[in-house]
Design a protein around this nucleic acid. Structure first.
Lengths: 227, 227
DNA sequence: CAAAGGAATATTGAATTCATAATTACTTTT
DNA sequence: AAAAGTAATTATGAATTCAATATTCCTTTG
């Protein structure tokens, strides 16, 4: 309901629609009413429609000519494809990071790594996820490849809705931690090939069909809960 | 000058502006005049501005608030980053292709491969490039990953301007052909790890700084020729 | 009562209009 | 004549208006 009065209106609107999608206020398959969103954001249809076109390009919504916009339905295949792609990108980020990363940056990641282990020992799932994400983001940042970061960020956006709803079994979790031990070792040796390989195969980058079955968008217009 | 009268106007306009960029009619750094393009395409500013926003999202142009749009300047780093990324994507496409490709599809690629060798023997550069591209596209298609294909296509678009202006030295060319021999063998064995590795390291995916120095966008507004 | 047809309504697509910021051209001053 | 300041012009940003396509709701017909 808060009125937007910033410059780059279309980008602002696009971001806010993105938030609505992420938080499940706009459901997959459901028609997106331009009028409704205009009123909600307090803008005219011009910047709103620009935002819709941008979001369609980013792959978050799809535009049906003369029949409005709707949130993209995340099929199992779609999510699997995205995971595969993100794994490849993470692999590349690891390879490049080894070439460019400074000792200080490695030390910072080592810090994060140890913190994460602490959270694992305490079985603090949410803090674990948080620090885990920070580690991967740090490696990505160290890759020194802007295009890579942009692409990864876009893919991340697309599946945010379903990503962190994974359930962690004990076996799964301990394997993920082992992967991270190996990652850390490879990074400290600056072994780009090895780190690349580990990240490409890293458990978190491999989709677990079973764990996702429950959060994938269903056939009918109303999606299941996806918090 | 041909008037556009199709539906999905903004997409049509975006594609045509993309063509103008590719063919060097719009130069990097140069300000893009909305009025001029509107007159050229015979459309109003509304769909044109939508197209500009989409092209900015696709990374072909950049929008400066209140100061218009301009074609993205391809720096050496930018192109290198894109190449690295595309190499990783090709690697993934190879891995996935090995899992999904049919015997018939392999046979088709073998055909292309042999044709390409013929062009190499005759030193027919352009036909060689053409068939070479077809091979890579076939593998990409066989990967059965739509998200991957979409992203590859976007990256490809971004650097089309400078991509096929590479000069081929004899040494470079013969190595590229050797790579292809190995690719073909890995594919026929459906050795996903091997094919992935080969494609990631494939010569054509590694930027040759020297060969690109001449075609990269320069500092001044007028770019060098890029045909 | 179900299905088909057709007006009424609502929604989208695109042009136009209005407001505001940037650029250019023209003075004025030193 | 060069620099600075100011008016005129132009370009961009966003709202509004107009046109065309879908959708809804009601009537008609079998």
């Amino acid at each position: 309901m808060t009125k937007i009065l910033q410059r780059n209106l279309y980008r602002e609107v696009a971001d806010r629609i993105g938030d609505l999608i992420e938080h499940g206020e706009l459901l997959p398959g459901e028609r997106i009413s331009e009028k409704q969103l205009c009123e909600r954001f307090g803008v005219s249809r011009t910047p709103l429609r620009e935002a819709l076109k941008v979001l369609a390009t980013e792959g978050l919504i799809e535009l049906l000519p003369n029949r409005g916009a709707r949130v993209v339905r995340l099929t199992l295949k779609n999510v699997k494809d995205t995971y595969d792609l993100m794994a490849a990108l993470e692999g590349l980020s690891g390879e490049l990071a080894c070439e460019y990363i400074s000792d200080a940056e490695i030390a910072a990641i080592r810090q994060l790594h140890d913190t994460m282990l602490e959270h694992y020992r305490n079985r603090d799932l949410m803090p674990y996820f948080q620090v885990n994400r920070q580690i991967h983001e740090s490696i990505l940042a160290a890759s020194n490849n802007d295009v890579l970061q942009e692409m990864y960020s876009n893919l991340s956006q697309r599946i945010k809705r379903v990503r962190y709803s994974k359930k962690m079994t004990e076996r799964y979790w301990s394997q993920a931690v082992k992967d991270h031990e190996n990652m850390m070792a490879a990074l400290e040796k600056r072994d780009s090939q090895l780190l690349g390989q580990i990240l490409r195969d890293h458990l978190c980058n491999k989709i677990e069909v079973a764990t996702l079955a429950g959060v994938i968008d269903t056939e009918d217009d109303k999606s299941v809960a996806n918090s």
